[in-house]
Measured scan of single mutants.
Amino acid sequence: MAAAAAAGAGPEMVRGQVFDVGPRYTNLSYIGEGAYGMVCSAYDNVNKVRVAIKKISPFEHQTYCQRTLREIKILLRFRHENIIGINDIIRAPTIEQMKDVYIVQDLMETDLYKLLKTQHLSNDHICYFLYQILRGLKYIHSANVLHRDLKPSNLLLNTTCDLKICDFGLARVADPDHDHTGFLTEYVATRWYRAPEIMLNSKGYTKSIDIWSVGCILAEMLSNRPIFPGKHYLDQLNHILGILGSPSQEDLNCIINLKARNYLLSLPHKNKVPWNRLFPNADSKALDLLDKMLTFNPHKRIEVEQALAHPYLEQYYDPSDEPIAEAPFKFDMELDDLPKEKLKELIFEETARFQPGYRS
Rank of each mutant, 00 (worst) to 15 (best):
A4K: 03
G8P: 10
A9Y: 04
A9Q: 13
P11L: 14
V14C: 11
V14G: 15
F19M: 11
P23G: 01
T26N: 14
L28G: 08
I31S: 01
A35L: 06
Y36R: 02
M38F: 09
M38S: 11
C40I: 00
S41L: 10
D44N: 14
R50A: 11
K54D: 05
S57M: 10
S57N: 02
C65A: 06
L69G: 03
L75D: 04
E81P: 08
I83V: 05
N87K: 15
D88C: 02
D88E: 14
I95F: 15
E96A: 10
V101M: 15
V101W: 04
L112E: 05
L115C: 04
L115E: 03
T118H: 05
T118A: 09
Q119L: 14
S122R: 15
D124E: 14
I126G: 08
C127Y: 13
Q132R: 10
I133S: 04
R135K: 10
R135D: 01
L137I: 05
I140L: 14
A143Y: 06
P152A: 06
S153T: 01
L155G: 04
L157Q: 14
N158S: 15
N158T: 12
L163I: 02
C166I: 11
A171R: 09
V173S: 10
G182F: 11
F183V: 14
T185H: 07
E186I: 04
E186S: 04
V188Y: 00
V188R: 12
T190R: 12
R191G: 08
L200E: 12
L200M: 14
S208G: 02
I211K: 13
R225L: 14
F228A: 00
G230W: 02
K231L: 05
K231C: 03
H232T: 01
Q236F: 08
Q236V: 06
N238D: 00
G242D: 13
G245L: 11
S246Q: 01
P247V: 03
E250Y: 01
I256P: 04
L258V: 06
K259A: 06
K259C: 05
K259Y: 05
A260L: 02
N262K: 15
L265K: 03
H269N: 14
H269W: 11
H269A: 01
K270T: 05
V273A: 05
W275C: 15
N281H: 08
S284V: 10
K285H: 10
K285F: 10
A286E: 02
L290H: 07
D291F: 05
K292V: 02
F296K: 05
N297M: 09
K300S: 09
I302R: 10
E303Y: 02
L313F: 08
L313S: 07
Q315P: 05
Y317A: 07
E322C: 06
I324N: 11
A325Y: 02
A325E: 13
A327D: 14
F331H: 07
E345F: 00
L346M: 14
E349L: 01
E350A: 01
Q355S: 10
G357C: 15
G357A: 08
R359K: 14
